[in-house]
Structure formats: structure tokens, C-alpha cells
Simulated assay, not measured.
Amino acid sequence: MQRIMIVEDDPKIAELLQSYISKYGFQVSVVKDFDKVMDTFYENRPDLVLLDINLPSYDGYYWCRQIRKESICPVIFISARIGEMDQVMALENGGDDFITKPFHAEIVLAKIRSQLRRAYGEYATKAEERVLEREGLKLFPERLELTLGNKIASLSKKEADIIESLMERYPRVAGREDLLEKLWDDQSYVDENTLNVNITRVRKKFQQLGILNAIETVRGAGYRLHVSWIKVGEE
């Protein structure tokens, strides 16, 4: 069942969309706390997001940029703004389509199906999927998934990038500067602890697969992947 996330601060519109879309076999989640949009995103891992522009605290452009740091899932803006510049801003901030209010629910559903086909279905790019494998551990960068045997861990984009670097360099050390360069375009604005926080998150994803001590910290150099999970995968 494909998952749709709705980010809309008008409860009547959000309820209408949720009720209508759910009837057609989609699993629909609605954001309730607009300061924690990304928490709902991480929890539900949607295949598509419906996103309003006018939201409390931060606007839809901001949240679309945050989503784009973690996922390439389709984002459809739904807004009462009808100006050409608003639509340009939506697309330039990572959106895939734009629907103006008031709208017909049938049009929303048709655009959802169209974007899902383009992203995942019959119109999706048929390029061969990349898979990195080390000692039974498999990383699927496009899916944002890490697997060991029949266990699966869902990843954010940054988590997948870190694991990809570690796997590519195994058994060598992945340097801190190399990781920072891969993850962030401008290292000068990255706090020293930012990489440490992301490494901690990656370690937790390994733990979800039953792998302990997967990443070794090499003092003064960076991080190295361990292969001590081989026995775990064989059990």
C-alpha cells in the first residue's frame, strides 16, 4: 500500500483529502504538529507528500527543502496562492507539481497517481538499480534501505550517503573531511558535532539489523566499517 502524507493546516481540507484519498487504497497520514513535520515524515516514510505553502512557523517551501535533503519522493504543492511566481518558487524549492485551491478531489487523485507512476511505476526510469554489498550487508541507495538477511532498515538520505561511503572505502578508513564533503556542499558552515550526530544515527540503523559495533572511530582520521556481523547474518 502506497503512503501519502498531507501537510495542511486547515483541518477541514486535510480531513477531506484524507477521507477521499484513503478510499482508493492509499495509506494516508496527516501532520498535526507543524513544528515537527519531519518527525511525521520519518515516522511514515511517505511515497508522496501533499504540501500547503501557508503553514504555521515555516512555510511549505522550507519543508520541501527539508524533505529534499532526505528523499526524492514526489511533492505536490496545494495552495490558495495563484501567482506565477508562487508556482515557480514551489518548483525551484523541490516540488514536482502545483494545485491551486479551490480544487476538485478527483484532480488531486489524478495528479497523485500520475506522480506515483512517474516515480515508481510504468513511467519510472528503468535504469538498473544500484546495490552495494559487503559480507551479506546490502545497501540500496535509491530505495534508502539497508538489509541483512531478511531484516530491513529504512534510511534518510544522509544516512544512506554515510553508509555508502563506508562501504565503498571498506576496509579502508573513510575520512571525516571526505564524509563532510559528500554530505554538505559548504563544510565551513557545518558544526563539528553534526557528523558525530549523523554517525550515531547510522549506528542505530545497524543495531536495527542486529549489528553491534559496526562503525569503528579511528581517532584523528575518520571512521571504518567492521565486518563482525558475518556470524550474525549466518545465524
Rank of each mutant, 00 (worst) to 15 (best):
I13P: 07
S71Q: 05
K204D: 08
M85R: 14
L166W: 03
L48G: 00
D86E: 13
E235K: 15
S114Y: 11
A214W: 11
A221T: 00
R113I: 02
E8W: 01
K36G: 10
I72K: 15
D52A: 11
L209R: 15
E235H: 09
I13K: 07
L148V: 06
E145D: 01
I72Q: 14
G25Q: 14
G175M: 04
I72M: 13
L137S: 05
G136S: 05
K205W: 08
F206I: 15
K126C: 02
I53C: 04
Y170D: 10
K32A: 03
V232L: 10
I163C: 06
N93R: 04
K69H: 11
R3C: 02
A80N: 11
N150E: 10
G210V: 13
R143C: 12
A110R: 12
A127C: 06
L212W: 08
P141C: 05
R45Y: 02
Y58L: 06
I162M: 03
I107E: 14
F206T: 13
D97I: 03
N213K: 09
A153Q: 11
L212Y: 12
L109Q: 07
V30E: 05
Y189A: 08
D10Q: 13
R176I: 10
F34N: 04
G233T: 13
D59A: 09
V108R: 07
L183C: 09
L144Y: 11
T200A: 15
T194P: 09
A110C: 09
K158V: 03
N196I: 14
L139E: 06
K205F: 06
V75C: 01
S154D: 04
E234D: 07
E70N: 12
D52W: 08
D52T: 09
